[in-house]
Design a protein around this nucleic acid. Structure first.
Lengths: 334, 334
DNA sequence: CGGAGCGACTAGAGCGCTCTAGTACCACGA
DNA sequence: TCGTGGTACTAGAGCGCTCTAGTCGCTCCG
């Protein structure tokens, strides 16, 4: 019993072929589901593979076949809206016969690094979720590979995003309709689309003849920015009657800080978010927000990538989806 | 100008070698940072590669080299605590010379599928974050590859988790110390470690002579469970003075629902979470919770994987880290 | 002056697959 | 009898790398 375990080598096609008494090529055929093997042989091969615990090596497969049929997705690991997107990307990719590889940007790992990782693993196309990089980087990436940008426009590349200005306009319309005049916007700073949302806000205010009431507070796309903005508002001379946050996470920070300081929402101040991510929908949050349909965005992105892989000469397209205001419990007449 | 673009083939080592006027092998040497190339040649090779936009193909590299030096991580895309873990895994993996590939379980994509994807991409080891599968599956995986389980014990495999019973005990001690007697536990249902936390709670209560006051409410590891539990408590004959939630997300739902129903936290009811994920730390949440050190868990997990890859005969080990109660603003004397 | 030793470089096999171009065999029709 | 066409299968090249076993000049030393 002192025999050492055989060096538990991963079984290969050769092993399966030997065991099934056929050639390597036949095994390959069977595993690719191609015709040319009799039903009887097919099942013998499958059985042999099963017994050996064989599973095709995708590196070798990748190398041999020109294509990897793998989609790389660049994401942020703690962004609820991106989580919604990722969840919707998997089924659509599978439907089109693509695998998905995820790579996360984190505080210590920038987008370039994350993308390089995906590229080295031979992803045929990269889907970038809300990338926060400059257009030059994207353009260069677009030359090197197929890239689809989700969540913002990207000149020269395929992009899928929602009409931010339109979404913000709906939110402003809603608030004005309720009777609000003092409507503040906490913006997304230099984040993706922040500029679009900001100008959308300013334009919408102007359209209602409230250009002089417009007020933009510097913010960002996370809770802390909402907290800071709320504190700034509380410290100011007078609270606005409504706040339009850069996104839901920002709105959450804002909401909570206001409430903790005794400000009734929506009684005294109305709050509107942006994205309609899972957090906003939680019944205890019940945030009025602008919905971007994550499933639709994801499906469009995957399809754009697939279409471009099928035909590289396709002109890059910008898909703009119309967002939709979802009125919930954080808005009311002033 | 009608010349079609040359079929934008990805450049290979051969191209670089040709351009630099050296052999393929030399280029390989340079890219692996091995000695054996003069500084002058080295920079010529690098320059040629740069000009061509060459990047090593990791599929081919993987195939040629026996090892892929890639770690697969199974995660849930919307779990804040797992996000903390993932963020900590990257730097540690890099330090040890491993790449990281992420694969997400989602409602429509189970753990087995996610793991298969990683395996097909030749991950040498799989790190499973809070897997919700049975031990048989884990055991089988452990035979097929190197697997490290994070967040729960796994017989026969390497695992890294914190001492849940101990963490819960600290929380109960803290509450009892504040004067609480009516302490309810909203549990994690069938989720990983839920049982450990539940018995930890029951034991701790018993240790304080409060066995007959112990009360467990069925719950789960998400906000909705917290909301439901809060509603159940509010509908009950009498509110407890303290609630110990299954995790932070559950605590959050609970907290918010209580507050929205006019229950002062911590004035009337104290709430304790579990995990200390980023959400709990947000200043507007300020949750008293049991901290599991994500960074430490992640580092241990990566190191365990690496150690086992270096020496497959290593006995599998269970690392239990001691959690630590973090007292914040949601607990006070009854 | 004849190697030994060393640094710089190359040839070529092989990693586990895919895929094209076959071969072998069996009806079946003329 | 000989194709003819179809089905079942195989041989072997090649994907882009790595890595072992070299070769080719040098310098250096006894």
């Amino acid at each position: 019993m002192a025999t050492p375990l055989p060096p538990r080598r991963r079984p290969t096609m050769v092993d399966v072929a030997a065991r099934a008494g056929v050639s390597r090529a036949l095994v390959s055929l069977v595993f690719r589901g191609q015709p040319g093997a009799s039903a009887e042989t097919r099942s013998r091969v499958l059985a042999a593979a099963e017994e050996l615990g064989y599973r095709p090596d995708s590196a070798a497969r990748l190398l041999a076949r020109g294509r990897s049929r793998t989609l790389g997705v660049l994401m942020t690991v703690r962004e609820p809206f991106e989580a919604d997107l990722v969840e919707a990307i998997y089924p659509e990719a599978e439907r089109l016969g693509y695998e998905v590889l995820l790579s996360a940007r984190t505080p210590g790992r920038d987008e370039a690094t994350a993308v390089e990782g995906l590229l080295a693993h031979r992803c045929e196309a990269i889907v970038l979720l809300g990338p926060d990089v400059d257009d030059a980087f994207l353009a260069e990436l677009g030359v090197r590979t197929v890239a689809v940008v989700v969540g913002r426009a990207a000149p020269g590349l395929d992009s899928v995003h929602s009409a931010d200005a339109e979404g913000v306009r709906q939110a402003v319309d809603h608030l004005v309709g309720l009777g609000h005049r003092a409507i503040v916007h906490v913006d997304g700073g230099t984040g993706p689309n922040a500029a679009a949302r900001r100008t959308g806000y300013l334009d919408a205010m102007a359209a209602h003849g409230l250009a002089d009431r417009a007020r933009v507070l510097p913010g960002a796309y996370h809770e802390d920015a909402g907290i800071a903005a709320a504190q700034a508002l509380l410290a100011g001379p007078e609270l606005p009657t409504a706040v339009l946050a850069a996104n839901d996470r920002c709105a959450l920070g804002l909401l909570d800080t206001l409430r903790r300081n005794g400000v009734d929402v929506p009684g005294r101040v109305s709050v509107v978010g942006y994205n309609d991510d899972r957090l906003a929908r939680l019944s205890h949050v019940d945030l009025t927000t602008v919905r971007q349909d994550a499933g639709l965005l994801a499906r469009h992105a995957v399809r754009a990538a697939a279409a471009r892989l099928d035909d590289p000469d396709l002109a890059p397209g910008e898909t703009e989806l119309t967002p939709e205001l979802v009125v919930r419990g954080t808005t009311a007449p002033p």
